[in-house]
Design a protein around this nucleic acid. Sequence first.
DNA 1: AAATACAGACTGACTGGTCGGTCTCGAGTG
DNA 2: CACTCGAGACCGACCAGTCAGTCTGTATTT
Lengths: 211, 211
Amino acid sequence: MPAKSTKQRITEAALQLFEENGFHAVTVDKIVKESNTSKGGFYHNFKSKDELLYTIHDSFITYVIDKAAEAHASYHTPAEKLYETVRSFVKMFEVYRAHVTVFYQESLYLSPDYFDSIKKKRDIYKDMMFSVVKEGKERGEFRDELPVPITSMAIFGMINWTYKWYKADGQYSVKEIADIYADLIMQSLLTEQARKEPAYQRFFLRTNRVM
Amino acid sequence: MPAKSTKQRITEAALQLFEENGFHAVTVDKIVKESNTSKGGFYHNFKSKDELLYTIHDSFITYVIDKAAEAHASYHTPAEKLYETVRSFVKMFEVYRAHVTVFYQESLYLSPDYFDSIKKKRDIYKDMMFSVVKEGKERGEFRDELPVPITSMAIFGMINWTYKWYKADGQYSVKEIADIYADLIMQSLLTEQARKEPAYQRFFLRTNRVM
DNA sequence: AAATACAGACTGACTGGTCGGTCTCGAGTG
DNA sequence: CACTCGAGACCGACCAGTCAGTCTGTATTT
């Protein structure tokens, strides 16, 4: 396999430094030192420190949208789509934890043009969630008394917040966390009737499981 | 009523500026200008910009812990305690939205000593949530298959994330949001049996409500 | 008079970005 | 094959601006 390019080394070093210290606390000199290159090398690969922050944001949100689109295309009912979207998002933490952290922690510091570009993509993702919840209500799978925006943002909150506490070497694996979140969300969204139907049982955790 | 003290004017100006722009993007000069004082006035009231950030953190977390302790003391069952804690936390957004934002967005930039002090208090709050969920499982109110830490953090995520999108002039009031969150959480935590009992119905949204 | 509260010019450290220069490597040429 | 040469990758000293914090001085209160 080919050695990592300078650009890649810079990105990886920056990702880790930004995650740990925040965008503003990390100097270009530190990134340069950590990635074994030079000021010149850095500015040869990136127009600015801002552009670097942007590429980190963009690669992440693009990936997430792709995954969500995949879940939408592969499954038929809103309940299934939501279940798979939630699970695939949480599972993504394994690889993209640092990206997620930077994305939600540092997006305030994107310069205006970059910010707008990222916001557009973030809104696409948000709209996908909104429409799944909406569709689920219309089809009678999800409870009618739940308003779409609040419910959707509650789901986002639950899954996104994970970046604040998840540790790769913690007690629970990403897959376990994903299953628990999916269960919680399904339990609270599905109607009384839907929850009883056999077809929906696969969304729930098995009971009497040893913790 | 007495005129606002310089210290108070500084704190309020800083709060708003930090919320909108982030700690590092706000200079002491800007805070000074916005609060109609001077560099001298600022450094007379605060040891450093870091100390200012700390006092904002501390006043918020202290308030939140007090509220949670109140809910614990006033209610008997874990389900009731959780229900009231969630609702009181969300309702707090009305007054403390800026504090919440700064708390979750900028705590990375607290200097080590201040950070430790805040972390201790945050852990107290976290432990209160953990023990309510744990107690609820032990008493058979909450589903046994849900692990305490993940479930607790999921709840925190749902409610804390609100700072990312809540607007005072939005479609939903804080009280409505609080009721919806409380419903979602109760629906997903309560056991099948508990959910049916009349005593627990008050936790849920009324159905057929017009949205 | 002593302490407190504040004003605002100033300082020094730090940081993002620049710029002239060097190194490497593959294509073209004889 | 030996040689040239240009392009892109990379280097690092340096610059100009910025910002937290200081210091000297003054007004007000006790």
